[in-house]
């Protein structure tokens, strides 16, 4: 199989206007992944499936991941006026990288026997623009797994033939796998509570132990 960088070059040649970026994997023994922009990802996926030397016809795994807003603290050197003279001072700057949701696809080739190739697509943010492009028209096996990402993360897949909740019931309102999901307070009786459970139980002890 070609390396991820070579595949990126061929993708850019085959699908003009595609936004593709190599995301390195901190684990050096594993391979990096390709992040693709939403506008042309469907054409890129079709190329990956149909190109004779790649033939990625098997989408093994479709995963959703939730990344929260992250604050980075960077130290920068800046020239400021101190007592009338210019000096270089180190200051810390806070940079916030907005959170996003992403879907990660692991592709293998059953015909040629190689793989995996990891591709990703990311939403713009976690709040109001949670839309991704569904790759179910290319790989039918992604159907149920994309529905699960919709159910548990709240990502809407455009082009999915049947997007509805799959694991939770129809009237459920939350997206449970998100990192900021809070469970309903389901008072669990515990004879010797401690730590978190004790704190939750104390709220109920006030009414004589009944919630």
């Amino acid at each position: 199989m070609e390396t991820v960088e070579q595949i990126k070059v061929r993708l850019e040649a085959a699908v003009p206007g595609l936004e593709v970026e190599v995301i390195p994997n901190p684990n050096s023994a594993e391979q990096p992944s390709l992040r693709m922009g939403l506008t042309h990802i469907l054409a890129a996926a079709r190329f990956l499936r149909d190109d004779p030397s790649l033939r990625f016809d098997y989408a093994s795994n479709v995963t959703g991941v939730d990344w929260l807003d992250q604050t980075f603290q960077e130290r920068q050197r800046q020239r400021v006026l101190v007592d009338g003279a210019e000096r270089e001072v180190e200051i810390t700057v806070q940079r916030i990288r907005p959170g996003y949701l992403e879907a990660i696809y692991h592709l293998y080739s059953m015909e040629l026997g190689h793989g995996p190739l990891v591709i990703r697509q990311r939403t713009a943010n976690r709040t109001d623009q949670c839309r991704l492009v569904s790759l179910t028209p290319i790989w039918r096996g992604a159907e149920f797994q994309e529905r699960e990402i919709y159910d548990l993360y709240g990502v809407v897949f455009e082009g999915h033939p049947d997007l509805r909740r799959i694991l939770m019931w129809e009237g459920f309102q939350d997206f449970p796998m998100r990192k900021d999901y809070v469970e309903p307070d389901d008072y669990e009786y515990e004879p010797t509570p401690h730590d978190l459970v004790l704190e939750k139980a104390r709220l109920h002890y006030g009414h004589g132990g009944r919630s």
Binding site: N25, P26, N61, H106
Partner: peptide, 23 residues
């Protein structure tokens, strides 16, 4: 374990069972 992403799969009796971990 050191940070990274890995997808490990085996041939379980029912099919391909895979675990995808982000550490």
């Amino acid at each position: 374990p050191r940070p990274g992403e890995v997808y490990g799969r085996i041939e379980a009796p029912k099919g391909e069972l895979g675990f995808y971990l982000i550490g």
